[in-house]
Design a protein around this nucleic acid. Structure first.
Lengths: 204, 204
DNA sequence: GTATTTTTATACTGTGCAGTATATTATATT
DNA sequence: AATATAATATACTGCACAGTATAAAAATAC
């Protein structure tokens, strides 16, 4: 209990015995598997390997911890979305987005499904601010895709009669449906076949 | 408190002061809006207008009540699925299935989304039997659609290279994605545009 | 070495939960 | 009318939960 991992000198007092990013990752796994309200503080502290007061000192409260875990999720498992949208063609971007979603949602090393879908639905009325946060984050991902498709249309990468807003909503709807299926036990093989069919809606 | 609505003679003792189907419908609304674990017994008894012991006497326990509410859901809001599959062509059946799902999920008179999707995700590990029940019920709906598409293929109503299992999974995935979107506030107008695109995957 | 500051360990608090015990009320039977 | 039976109303039980108070431990500052 005297590790003091590369902390800047000048910080007085007893040093933290844990690495914030590491325990955040453990917390993310718990929230991902159980949802916001389904994850109890005993679940969280048990998986994180820290005590309750340590958690509160480092993250504020359960909601603060969840928001930090959400950021961690966006920067880690969900980072493929940013990369996907950089593909040169809209078609390639969407294909990579869908297949990336499959890979993430059915990855055997992480809980099945999607934290944002699971979290938003598995969330009573008491945690309304959490639900709003998740809704707005999901809306932001849809908006990113929509902007990418608007750009594609301007570039002639999509036919003139294509509707970027409708297409974006359709594809994120498929992604969220796959999250439900993955949470129910669907395999990545099955979901890839869903992707293949979903892409047949592509405007040619 | 002495209504005694058409109960068969010979039932001794104080008669029920409530109608079972009616309070079941109230319970369904609560579960639909809040999920299985999110619905407390105070929520339920409050909406149903009956006392706690009456609930336990009539439905066993919370899980028993939920299962009865699920049956009520299948017989009511979800009954359109049986009708949809009776359409003469597979294409018409799927179209009616998707549009019926939109109507149900975005009906302003009922909670948004789908009880089975919401219930399965908003369900901690404590209620594992509930989750399994919902998973198997959802699988049953997918199987119904698959059988309808297998029949269509045998009748020449689908091309020989069409894959009924893949198509069924794809369309139920879209339906579940729409349930997530509806729970997040999507309108029926928006969801109908999703349906229009989803149907472009239809094998011609 | 002593004081100061921050983290940690343990144990607690109040609240909401599902389920139940007890007593009362309303009906049918006799 | 008296009795048996089933449903209701009220209040309770034990438990899990998020959050916290208190004191001990581990580091820096002087």
């Amino acid at each position: 209990m005297s590790v003091n991992k590369g902390r800047p000198a000048g910080r007085r007092g007893r040093p933290r015995a844990f690495d914030v990013e590491e325990v955040l990752d453990r917390a993310l796994q718990v929230f991902w598997r159980k949802g916001y309200e389904g994850a109890s503080l005993d679940d969280l502290t048990g998986a994180m390997g820290i005590s309750r007061p340590s958690l509160y000192a480092a993250f504020g409260d359960k909601e603060g911890l969840f928001r930090k875990a959400l950021d961690h999720y966006a920067d880690g498992p969900l980072s493929f979305t940013r990369e996907a949208l950089k593909e040169p063609t809209a078609r390639a971007a969407v294909e990579r987005l869908l297949l990336g979603a499959v890979k993430m949602q059915a990855d055997p090393d992480t809980p099945p499904g999607c934290l944002m879908v699971h979290g938003a639905l598995a969330c009573g009325e008491g945690a309304d601010s959490i639900r709003q946060e998740l809704n707005s984050r999901r809306a932001a991902y849809e908006a990113d895709l929509r902007r990418r498709l608007v750009r594609a249309k301007a570039e002639g990468d999509l036919p003139p009669d294509a509707n970027p807003a409708d297409l974006a909503r359709y594809f994120v709807t498929v992604v969220r449906g796959m999250a439900v299926e993955a949470a129910g036990g669907a395999s990545s093989h099955q979901l890839r076949r869903v992707v293949r069919l979903a892409l047949r809606a592509w405007p040619e």
